[in-house]
Design a protein around this nucleic acid. Structure first.
Lengths: 149, 149
DNA sequence: GTATGTGCAAACTTTTTGCTTTTTG
DNA sequence: CAAAAAGCAAAAAGTTTGCACATAC
């Protein structure tokens, strides 16, 4: 049962709203936070049991192209997907041991200003059309600080 | 023929300096810049023909643990390796279409200052022991700006 | 000589693709 | 009904692992 919320958005771009797409959108919308394709597959099967993993990948790819979802790669061999929130821009704090990812949004004003300057410079110097950036910190989370040496 | 340069470094840590390790070190040292395991494999085979891809992976992993090499993930499904240079810290500008990666080091002073502040805050707030960060910009390079829409 | 490292091939994991059937508009 | 999407299974692509043989110290 395709929800009404995104219908227009899809139609405009020549895509169809379908059961699987609605179910996937629902999951990334509710369970936001760095989900792997498999996380999403697992979760979506609860509301849409017949779905296949290929549909998960194809749909996430579509959502990324539509700007509904952001795709990240923190290392570890799996891509991570996150609903494109209308809320505050944020970055990530990644534990190198357990892979846990924490969002943060400190000093965003200063950051935004600096990022703007860098973007302008890079645009000019390297002729890149920049549309996004990613600032991630890597380290060990509280519990992994003991375990690992 | 294992070079003398890194011998001590290896011995200290209970590792042995071997032909393959020397050859790999040589390649990442000379051809610096975001190499994939396969790039390195291809290159190393010129000076050490019998080498296997497994050795490349195992050795790069060792080098990462030893701090000789940094491992990155820009998306695209391949890990990238870069010699841990004593030179200026830098970040990356990644083309989302062709995967080309350009280094940049603009505004590093301002950046360093900001990064320090954020690190301190994150350390305190989330109890993470941060040891590195990565700031990457994504966009389309000159030639891909036409090709892709 | 013994522990460590290597090569090879097989295994694993994540992601993609081909093709037939199903569904949407 | 025609075009787009889904399901399934097979294939790719990248990386890891097991094991017998080779090498460093």
């Amino acid at each position: 049962m395709p929800g009404p919320r995104w219908r227009g958005n899809f139609k405009e771009r020549g895509h169809r709203m379908t059961g699987p797409r609605d179910a996937i959108l629902d999951v990334v919308n509710k369970k936001q936070g760095h989900l792997t394709a498999d996380d999403i597959f697992f979760e979506v099967r609860k509301s849409y049991p017949g779905i296949g993993i290929a549909t998960i990948y194809r749909t996430l790819d579509l959502f990324v192209r539509m700007g509904l979802v952001n795709k990240f790669d923190f290392g570890g061999g799996k891509s991570r997907y996150e609903f494109t929130s209308k809320e505050k821009h944020h970055h990530h704090l990644v534990c190198k041991n357990c892979g846990r990812v924490v969002d943060y949004d400190s000093f965003l004003d200063e950051e935004t200003e600096l990022i703007k300057k860098i973007e302008a410079e890079l645009n000019r110097k390297h002729d890149f059309k920049i549309d996004s950036h990613q600032l991630d910190f890597y380290g060990l989370c509280k519990s992994c600080q003991r375990e690992v040496k």
